[in-house]
Design a binder for these strands. Structure first.
Ligand code: FES
Ligand code: FES
Lengths: 141, 141
DNA sequence: CTAAACTTGACCATTTTAGTCAGGTATGTA
DNA sequence: TACATACCTGACTAAAATGGTCAAGTTTAG
């Protein structure tokens, strides 16, 4: 089970953005340099974030991106959904009555994986961008 | 973030095994048929489970595998470790002081991913094979 | 002595990931 | 108006991971 770069970068970039967007729009170039993420890749990611109304774009010189919501209202769930980083632990289609092995009933571990999926998603639902900003100021060891 | 088949199959197979091993050793062929998992693939998985002393093997006709511990003492953590299904959310090497971007300090989201890793691992540490057996008898809707 | 079942290791097709590349288009500033 | 900056879009691809298969054994109950 691992987290992909796309999801990791999306959150990283948004935290970076949230720190600076009070004043001016933040350019992807800046984020790219500060966070060490490929500019071209960031563009793909922000295209999706924009479609999902998490950020707004401002074109032209001095342009960049700005948050489209209050940091408190942007949960990790929203970010992950936007960039298609989905948590998938069950193998079967959930809606279907059928199991992952093609049989007529759910497999013997289905409930377990479903529980795990919920467990993980709960984490994402309870974390907002705001939390991450605070968290970082705390300078925890 | 998704669970791989290897981890899913390992747990599936062990639950199946745990249900039947009171009487006789259980052959991989039986598990393969009951759970719809490729026999050759199961062999790879059980080879690892054996090395990690989770199961014992009995060779020859009427042979098969048997649990090597009490179901209550086999946590999901143990199973996942055995088959190299590791939870990896941070990108960096944890021991290192360096960040994932090659910089001298940890990245701004490092703490978050670390917390997530703990969150997921906690789930695995608190589930034993025994729990899964009980869970399945409950015939939950 | 033979069939069932474990054992080992090499091999491989497909899919996913993590990007790159090559073109645009819009707009603030000089 | 020129032009640099920064967003925008879609195609493409190398490398890694996944999810197996295949082949050639060895062991032992009956
Ligand atoms: S995971 Fe849903 S039936 Fe197996
Ligand atoms: S994940 Fe550890 S430094 Fe970025």
């Amino acid at each position: 089970m691992k987290l992909t770069s796309k999801g990791r970068y999306a959150v990283m970039a948004l935290v970076d953005l949230a720190r600076f967007d009070n004043i001016n729009p933040v350019s992807l170039r800046d984020i790219s340099l500060r966070q060490g993420i490929s500019l071209d890749y960031l563009e793909q990611i922000f295209s999706k974030l924009k479609k999902n109304e998490i950020v707004k774009s401002i074109r032209g010189t001095q342009g960049g991106y700005v948050l489209n919501k209050n940091p408190n209202d942007i949960k990790l769930t929203n970010i992950f959904n936007a960039v298609d980083e989905k948590v998938k632990t069950v193998q079967c289609r959930k809606e279907s009555k059928k199991g992952c092995n093609g049989k007529a009933t759910k497999c013997i571990t289905h409930n377990l994986w479903d529980e795990l999926e919920t467990h993980i998603n709960t984490f994402f639902e309870n974390k907002s961008l705001k939390d991450l900003l605070n968290n970082n100021k705390e300078t925890r060891v």
